[in-house]
Amino acid sequence: MTLHTRVTLRPTMLSDLDFVVGVEQDAANRPFITPWERTQHEGAVRFPDARHFIVELDATSAGFVILQGCRSPNRSVELKRIVLLPKGLGVGRACVRKLKTLAFAQLGAHRFWLDVKGRNEHARQLYVSEGFVEEGRLRESVRIEGEVGPEGAEVFDDLIVMSLLRREFESRQAQGREPS
C-alpha cells in the first residue's frame, strides 16, 4: 500500500473543528499560516463555494485542507490552506496530488492556485516539484506575529502566488508524473 492510497480526504464535519483549530495552533504550523477563528472554519464547511476536508493517514486525522472558488465562473480554484501535523512523512505531497486531481477532474478547474509565505521554503519547494509555477510575490504583505526586528520594528513576510494550469497538469499526466 503506497502513501498515496493511505492518505485520504473526507469532508470536514462541525464536530471536527476542535481538531482543526488545534492543528492551526500547533507551534510547528503557526509560523506558516494565519490562523482562523472557529467561525471562519464553520463558514468554510457550510459555504457552497468552498470545500473543507480532513486529511487522514490510515484513517487517523492528520490535518486539514480548504479549497475556495469551487464554483468560480473563471474556473480558478484556490488551495486556501493545507495544515498537517505529521511532518516529513510525505503526507503533504500525497495530499497536494489528491487536491490537484480533485481540482481539475472533479471541480473542472482551469487554474489551481495558492499563496505561500516566503519563509516557508519547504512548502514552496514541494509546490514547485508538483508543477506549480511562481506568478508573483506580494512583498512584505503579512505581519509575523510575535517577532520583532531591529529597534523594535514589526517584521513582515512575503506571500508568493503560485499556480498550475489544466494544460500543465495534463502534460504532467501524459509524462507519467501524476499518480493515477
Score class of each variant (00 low, 15 high):
M13P: 05
R30D: 04
C95Q: 14
E168F: 12
R124L: 03
T8I: 07
A94T: 13
I33C: 12
S129A: 15
S129W: 03
P86F: 07
G136T: 01
H4M: 15
T8W: 05
I160W: 02
D26H: 14
V133Y: 12
A50R: 06
T2G: 14
I66T: 12
H41A: 11
I144F: 05
G63M: 03
L84H: 00
K87G: 08
R71C: 08
L9S: 08
L17T: 14
R71Q: 10
L114I: 07
R111Y: 06
L67R: 04
L85S: 14
P35M: 10
A153G: 11
D26K: 08
H52Q: 12
K117Y: 14
T34F: 10
L99C: 08
S180M: 04
T2D: 15
Q125G: 13
A123E: 04
G152P: 04
R38V: 07
T34Y: 02
A103Q: 04
P86C: 11
R172D: 06
R137A: 11
P73R: 06
G152H: 12
W113N: 00
P179N: 13
G118S: 00
R137D: 03
L138S: 09
L14Q: 13
C70K: 12
L164Y: 03
G149C: 01
V55H: 06
W113L: 00
F47M: 12
A59Q: 08
N120P: 02
V55C: 00
Q125F: 11
R143L: 05
P73C: 10
E168P: 11
V133W: 13
A123S: 13
E121S: 10
L164T: 05
L84G: 09
L57R: 00
A59M: 06
R97L: 15
R124C: 09
L57D: 01
I144P: 00
E121F: 07
Q173R: 15
R166G: 07
R177G: 11
G43P: 02
R71A: 09
A27E: 14
K100V: 13
R6F: 10
V20S: 02
K117P: 00
I160E: 00
D18M: 10
E134Q: 15
F156V: 07
P150V: 03
R139F: 12
Q106T: 03
L67F: 05
D58F: 04
N29A: 13
Q25S: 15
W36Y: 13
A174C: 04
L79P: 03
E154M: 10
V161I: 14
A123F: 08
G92N: 03
E151H: 14
V83I: 11
R93K: 15
P35Y: 03
S129Y: 01
G43M: 01
E140D: 09
T39A: 15
E134T: 14
F47I: 08
G88W: 00
A50M: 01
H41M: 11
L84E: 07
R124G: 05
K117I: 08
S76T: 09
V155H: 06
H122S: 08
A123P: 07
G88C: 02
E130S: 03
N74C: 09
I66L: 11
V161S: 05
F32N: 08
T8A: 02
S129N: 14
R10D: 03
E154T: 01
E37I: 05
Q125P: 10
V91E: 10
K98Y: 08
A27V: 11
H122A: 11
L138C: 00
R143W: 04
L138G: 01
T101Y: 09
